[in-house]
Amino acid sequence: MFEARLLRGSILKKVLEAIKDLLTQATFDCDDSGIQLQAMDNSHVSLVSLQLRADGFDKYRCDRNISMGMNLNSVAKILKCAGDKDTVTMKAQDNADTVTFVFESPNQEKVSDYEMKLMNLDLEHLGIPETEYSCTIRMPSAEFARICRDLSQFGDSMVIACTKEGVKFSATGEIGSANIKLAQTASVDKEEEAVIIEMDEPVTLTFACQYLNYFTKATSLSPQVQLSMSADVPLVVEYRIQDIGHIRYYLAPKIED
């Protein structure tokens, strides 16, 4: 039997909001270490990797490894029925063909359960190599979401240039060109609002705004976002989910052919 119970049910609600526009279906791979989900978006351009560790749940039981193929639009609809303060439990019998979501209101007076059919998905699994990145930028996630939204009005690509002084986001298009420069925060008193850059060597790469704007749907999961860049390898946009895991998005840079 598989059962995962989370008092902070809003995390699962936010996770679905963060992936449902990019992926229509995905497999939740569960074992005794926790829940992993990895899937390419429908156009196979970007990759999403979610990890929710067992020790982050208030109760976690996984007698046998189980892979649950789900339609994420359906899961998102079900999780929309959960209150922000509800406890959410996911459970499934071993080799079951359905999964059940149980929502309990804080005062236990309202308990809802939703049973959903599972899908047989044989999605490809990709190996993500361990990579040392030339540049790593930690910044407020709301700031990054704002920059992606603003610059995508100017062009369908965004250039991210990282040096030890700071990071510059640029876009050009018919209506003109836009540049947003963020300096590295000098005195880091509030980590969550700081821009922190670790740079081995400067990097300038171009990315499709459309995908970056999909990634920023995860903004509500974490006050900070971490961008990791190296020449000619995919960008990693990571949102840490407090005390339980992370969601990482991978996108290859656009390159001159």
């Binding site: 351009v45 990709l126 995919p234 991978y250 390159i255």
Partner: peptide, 14 residues
């Protein structure tokens, strides 16, 4: 010409 390669070009299937 600027091209966008799919992620599979960079990460091998396991």
């Amino acid at each position: 010409k600027i091209v966008q390669f799919p992620i599979k070009v960079y990460f091998a299937m396991t």
